[in-house]
Design a protein around this nucleic acid. Structure first.
Ligand SMILES: [Mn+2]
Ligand SMILES: [Mn+2]
Ligand SMILES: [Mn+2]
Ligand SMILES: [Mn+2]
Lengths: 215, 215
DNA sequence: TTAAAATGTTAGATGAATCTAATAAAATAA
DNA sequence: TTATTTTATTAGATTCATCTAACATTTTAA
């Protein structure tokens, strides 16, 4: 484990990694809300610690060690979020900010007890999978609601954003993980969807449906 | 709220304050495990922030603002300890180190929910009182077991040390908060006590009985 | 295929929190 | 009361994480 700052860099690099695993300095700087030279010097430090591979003017990429570290932090974050919802009775829209702090708590006992109390859960309150202790992530295929054809009935299994404004909107629209919905109509002009949930019609903009995942 | 470092200074100054409220730089440096000049510069900074009053070569003393800040951190620490024991099922000997981290979590919701779930508790797992939201501390008179006369029957209400080695020893001796015990004999040579707890004799050194409080 | 734009790097500075070495003041002991 | 010891202060350096300004490289577009 490195410093809080290092942990946040590792986590951000992980979450920005796409197919190739390469992450640009510009994207990292935006995500972490720091300037480019800051990222540059931190990246060099993480390279010395063998958390990432780095060569000048190439992007940056996590090593196996770095990936494991990232998944360990993500595990703590997601366990904490679920614990805050299930045990402490907080809403799914208010747990992310607390989990951002709890994910840096250094105590295996604390997280092992959470895991036990939650009965070794597989997903967080936003439907995101919880990595196991070895850093294994149960990959589940999921489709964005924005890609689903009219007439289909699907179950909401995850949201890809866990920040308050988005989840506040879903609360107002009464959209939750586990809901079964039917796509009634897709508006060609703006891509918004009219969906049916237990008899009620709900209108969702494309910005929303792109961030809702179903199976 | 200041930085994590500032919070730890405030908390240490509070816990070192005796009658007068004055704390020496030397004591602070020892408690925080830093050198004297480090304390000196930090103290100046806290004085600017009106958390303490400071004049060169005088000790340092918390202002009302500083005292409130200290009690708010202590409240979080003790609520966390009790939560870890009562809700998460950890032992009283392993919660202090985790609470040292949790006390810096910035979230009123997190601590309000703890408080509710624990039913607005008055004391932590070590018998220490939990300050309320306004920073009021229910002062209870308590006597060190080392001061109690032979023959008396008393109830253990608190321990003044919550570090693992001490609590591990109490666990081995089967001494817990709430236990009723009778002082059988005080050994004049070393001040150790033979006590009786539900029929069993337990020998406790003076170093232990000084840190056990009864009523 | 060169000019412009985007992206990444280097140099040098800053603030926070720490240190060591030297010095000053206050408290204690001879 | 003076000398010694303890306690506190100052000066200057270090490490971490950050910044701005200037420069270099790579990518994209004219
Ligand atoms: Mn989250
Ligand atoms: Mn989440
Ligand atoms: Mn404690
Ligand atoms: Mn305690």
């Amino acid at each position: 484990m490195g410093s809080l700052t290092e942990e946040n860099y590792i986590k951000s690099i992980y979450s920005l990694s796409g197919e190739t695993g390469e992450v640009s300095f510009t994207d990292l700087a935006r995500k972490l809300e720091v300037k480019l030279p800051t990222v540059n010097s931190m990246v060099k430090k993480l390279a010395v610690k063998k958390m990432i591979v780095y060569a000048p003017y190439k992007g940056v990429k996590l090593t196996e060690k770095g990936k494991k570290e990232a998944l360990s932090i993500i595990r703590k974050h997601r366990l904490a979020e679920l614990f805050l919802v299930k045990v402490m009775g907080l809403g799914w829209e208010e747990v992310h900010d607390i989990a951002e702090q709890l994910e840096h708590v250094n105590s295996a006992r604390f997280y092992d007890r959470m895991d036990e109390l939650l009965n070794f859960p597989k997903a967080d309150p936003h439907g995101e999978p919880i990595p196991d202790t070895d850093g294994k992530l149960p990959a589940k295929k999921r489709i964005a609601l924005s890609e689903v054809a009219e007439g289909k009935t699907v179950k909401i299994i995850a949201v890809s954003v866990d920040e308050k404004p988005f989840l506040d909107l879903l609360n107002i629209k009464r959209i939750h993980i586990g809901d079964t919905i039917t796509i009634q109509k897709r508006e060609p002009f703006d891509g918004s969807l009219a969906i049916l949930k237990s008899g009620h019609e709900i209108i969702l903009s494309q910005q929303v449906t792109e961030r809702l995942f179903v199976e």
